[in-house]
Design a binder for these strands. Structure first.
Lengths: 240, 240
DNA sequence: CGGAGCATTGAGCCACCTCAAGTACTGTGG
DNA sequence: CCACAGTACTTGAGGTGGCTCAATGCTCCG
């Protein structure tokens, strides 16, 4: 009865089998969506809550000049937006990066879960806090890190998050991001992302190609990134 | 019985007089702290929850090279950190910028409030979402905006937030930030912040001096910033 | 009236950008 | 099995926004 979502949440609060069943049941409504599918567009009024069960998505915001800034990557088990219809209007868009399985929980049901079970509320809450920590880490990267540090840091984040959900081996994981997407995430040009990746490859730190990240020198990578994974609270390291 | 905190929260969910009284009572333990006082340091285990009742504070993270990145500004009514002792260890520090009045709510009491009153939970939740929206807006700024746009955007954010809590006139508000602090917030050098401020002043867009922001041409400022205040959800425009 | 912190200004430099071309892939239709 | 088109990746040359280093002025405060 468990899935990527219940796995993630049970890392955040002790959930009984009944709780897990409740949550899994809430996710029963699953949709298969192709890559590049918009789940939410800026300006939409958010009704159901989306949960990623498989595949990658990202939230982003467009700028008047046509630029794009990615705000977060969503992996299996992640809420896409936990807004519970609280906001009048979405201030950003969410789009899939790969083909994905997405559960849609009606707002009512989310609220019922929160009202009924305090440990589920607790898990939601914690999940929020972790997401907020990720946002803060991004701000630090964008504000004070060089291009190489930024990219190294993002790679560390994504690798650890993939590992936490059992989707990484000891030195590599899937990472289905084009250099263009990467550029939109770290606030650089695709051209410059390319050069930085080349540098990391030549220095035998890591390699990124054909949708996979291979970490060659993890110590060096973490050093470059100034990475401290605490904020991800990866307490439950479950390997599938 | 109301205060800056209950005012902010009652913008997020309908709170009865009893709820307000409950919240105000939870804030009864108030401390006066001077400017530059650390409320929380990175690595501390967070116990009580702090709420700003008066004055300014900011959350920040230090980097190995001695650089600093500010992550958020806290104004009266804001939670400093809503962690409810959920995290083992703070991943950033919080320090006052001006002399301030700060309420400390014991973790137990926070949890009791959440368990007891669903509309208070709702208000907390919403408050979280708004804070997250602010973080996202910062990421957009850092990733894709020029120095001038970034500063203009931050000025818009802070002015609107001050106005929302009745601390701004139609064209100005207090803004007790040195150029050094500003630089740490927008991810620039103090020197460059200075030059940008000079530009905005000469172009008669805004003036920032002696701790106050004066907006001369609001339309132009919002234009430069590409500012859309939706994300602040300033639905309750109460002027004191 | 001396010191400390902040604001201001100048000169030179570099990380990252822009523009532009060219090279792999990969899927698709003939 | 091959032309091809579309997309991503790569590389080069030159420009620039913001940085660094450094000096000077301002203001507040003891």
């Amino acid at each position: 009865m468990s899935n990527a979502f219940t796995d993630r949440l049970s890392g955040y609060a002790p959930l009984s089998d009944a709780d897990v069943a409740l949550l899994a049941d809430a996710c029963r409504n699953v949709r298969d969506v192709p890559a590049g599918h918009h789940m939410i567009r800026e300006g939409d009024s958010p009704d159901p809550v989306f949960v990623m069960l498989d595949g990658w998505a990202c939230g982003y915001k467009m700028l008047p000049d046509g630029g794009r800034q990615i705000l977060a990557f969503m992996l299996p088990g992640d809420f896409c937006d936990i807004h519970i219809a609280v906001l009048k209007e979405m201030d950003h868009s969410i789009v899939t990066i790969t083909p994905a399985k997405v559960a849609t929980l009606p707002r009512k049901q989310m609220e019922a879960l929160v009202e009924a079970k305090s440990n589920i509320t607790h898990a939601f809450w914690w999940s929020q806090l972790v997401d907020q920590g990720v946002l803060r880490a991004w701000i630090v990267s964008m504000g004070r890190r060089t291009a190489e540090e930024r990219i190294a840091h993002l790679m560390c984040e994504l690798y650890i998050r993939m590992r936490n959900i059992g989707l990484a081996t000891h030195d590599q994981c899937e990472l289905p991001l084009t250099q263009l997407v990467l550029a939109d995430a770290v606030g650089l040009t695709p051209v410059h992302v390319n050069r930085v990746l080349k540098g990391l490859r030549l220095n035998k730190v890591m390699e990124l190609s054909s949708g996979a990240l291979k970490i060659i020198d993890p110590v060096r990578l973490a050093e470059i990134a100034g990475f401290d994974g605490n904020y991800l609270h990866s307490r439950l390291i479950k390997v599938a």
